[in-house]
């Protein structure tokens, strides 16, 4: 796969998935604490999202940085727009703004444990064709 194809794939993933998370690892097997926490917030809010593991090829990360202008992963996009990484997501989660942006209700138990994503609430999985 050429760099151009990887970039086009990333751009299409952002355009076609209303909630798109780029992360290290997968929602069920995150490879980084920040990615785990980000996926977990989305799981807790019960939103459907697509996730893409950036680790299989270092060029995925390079191209993602070029596309978004954001240097770290995870990165959350909603309706094609970069919302932010784990810090911004956490801030927005705690204020209820993330639920609002995603068009969902904050769960009653909003202090839900964010440690690990809940595998029973399966997100849409995006086939990783970049490997």
């Amino acid at each position: 796969m050429t760099n151009e194809e990887i970039r086009a794939f990333i751009e299409r993933a952002i355009a076609e998935n209303e909630v798109m998370l780029f992360m290290k690892g997968t929602p069920t097997e995150p490879r980084c604490g920040f990615s785990a926490r980000s996926a977990s917030m989305l799981n807790t809010l019960s939103v459907q999202y697509a996730a893409l593991d950036i680790l299989p090829d270092p060029r995925i990360k390079q191209e993602l940085i070029e596309v978004s202008g954001w240097p770290t992963t995870p990165q959350l996009f909603v309706k094609g727009e970069l919302i932010g990484g784990c810090d911004i997501m956490t801030e927005m989660y705690e204020s209820g703004e993330l639920a609002q942006t995603l068009g969902v209700e904050m769960p009653a138990d909003e202090q839900a444990d964010l440690g690990q994503p809940d595998p029973t609430q399966g997100p849409i999985s995006l086939e990783n064709r970049l490997g």
């Binding site: 202008g69 954001w70 240097p71 770290t72 970069l82 919302i83 932010g84 990484g85 810090d87 911004i88 801030e91 927005m92």
Partner: peptide, 10 residues
């Protein structure tokens, strides 16, 4: 926006 603020720091 928050994104723009964080980008300035990055």
């Amino acid at each position: 926006s928050r994104i723009e603020q964080h980008k300035l720091v990055y």
